[in-house]
């Protein structure tokens, strides 16, 4: 059956759409594309341009070539700590928070009682706004008034937020706190749709719970893995609000996005310089994501690698599709 579809699709080729179809598609696909270009990509390119200039947002824009980048790498003390913290963030979310979210999802998927309660509780941190996250950090970690010192170290208080070697780990915990719930919900949704007969079949074959998970369940979660992977990278590289709420991202809590904010959004108005930091951040993000997507695409299971899309053009893919459907 499936093999008939691509041929039909191909045969109808260009006359597939009526004029009305073309109009609808043109307008409704054109609008988001236009918006994306006008609001996101256009300004991004403009920012790349601005990164080679010096501008205070008021006076004239002055071309300075690569000076901003030179200053950034050689004469801006917060830059390297910020880059390091962003990578640390990525490693922590990717290696700890994301797998932890997956673990919770797997446990909850086993049909435990009170599952909805657990889900809601674990998801709660995701909906919180900046102000309350900052307050909660103060509440728990404040050296003089916080709950943690009240419990652990009454006489010899630890400076959880002020010690630049320590505070980043506390903040990573807070970031993980928010990230875990997010990831858990995504995976939970994915797990709900794993065909239980697959698991049963594996169980009959004598596979243990762990084996079933790694050999059967995880591979079928591939589309979720892609989304979670992308989200983890985004969250790690765009991370901003928690440190900003805690101490405006200073004293050990530097992040690239905070440096961009300090220079562009705030009173400082070093727009060219801030844009240069943003461009660095952009290049790093794009590097990660494109590498990730390309790798995933090779497997042919991501939006980019879209099997339906290809099916119309590449008849050879029909075979694979057929196999998947039987599964």
């Amino acid at each position: 059956m499936p093999s008939a579809i691509p041929r039909r699709a191909r045969r109808r080729g260009p006359r597939r759409f009526t004029r009305r179809d073309l109009l609808v598609t043109g307008v409704l696909l054109g609008l988001p594309i236009l918006l994306d270009l006008a609001v996101i990509w256009g300004p991004t390119l403009a920012s790349v341009g601005l990164s080679f200039t010096s501008w205070d947002g008021i006076g004239d824009i002055e071309w300075v070539g690569g000076r901003n980048y030179h200053d950034l790498f050689t004469d801006y003390p917060p830059f390297w700590p910020a880059a390091r913290n962003n990578l640390l963030w990525l490693a922590f979310l990717g290696l700890i928070a994301t797998p932890f979210g997956l673990l919770l999802a797997v446990l909850l998927d086993r049909g435990v009682r009170f599952s909805r309660f657990y889900q809601s509780t674990l998801y709660m941190p995701v909906v919180l706004s900046l102000a309350i996250v900052g307050f909660i950090a103060q509440l728990i970690l404040s050296r003089d008034q916080g709950a943690l010192n009240a419990v652990l170290a009454r006489d010899n208080p630890v400076d959880w937020l002020g010690d630049p070697d320590l505070n980043i780990w506390m903040i990573l915990l807070a970031a993980g706190w928010r990230h875990t719930g997010y990831v858990m919900i995504l995976y939970l949704a994915g797990l709900k749709s794993v065909d239980p007969s697959l698991k049963e079949a594996a169980a009959i074959d004598g596979a243990g719970a762990r084996q079933t998970f790694f050999r059967v369940v995880l591979p079928t979660l591939r589309p979720v893995n892609v989304i979670v992977g992308v989200i983890t990278v985004i969250e790690a590289l765009r991370a901003f609000d928690i440190v900003y709420a805690v101490n405006q991202g200073r004293n050990g809590l530097e992040l690239l996005s905070v440096l961009v904010t300090d220079n562009i959004i705030g009173e400082a108005a070093r727009i060219g310089f801030g844009s240069a930091i943003a461009v660095v951040l952009l290049v790093v993000s794009l590097g990660f994501i494109v590498a990730y997507l390309v790798q995933e695409m090779r497997q042919g299971k991501v939006p980019g690698g879209d099997r339906e899309t290809r099916r119309g053009k590449v008849p050879g893919k029909a075979q694979e599709k057929g196999e998947e459907e039987r599964r």
Partner: peptide
């Protein structure tokens, strides 16, 4: 997809 990755602050000034 890539458009979603950009840090918000990048596009503010333009």
């Amino acid at each position: 997809t890539a458009g979603n990755l950009l840090p918000q602050q990048v596009i503010v000034t333009p």
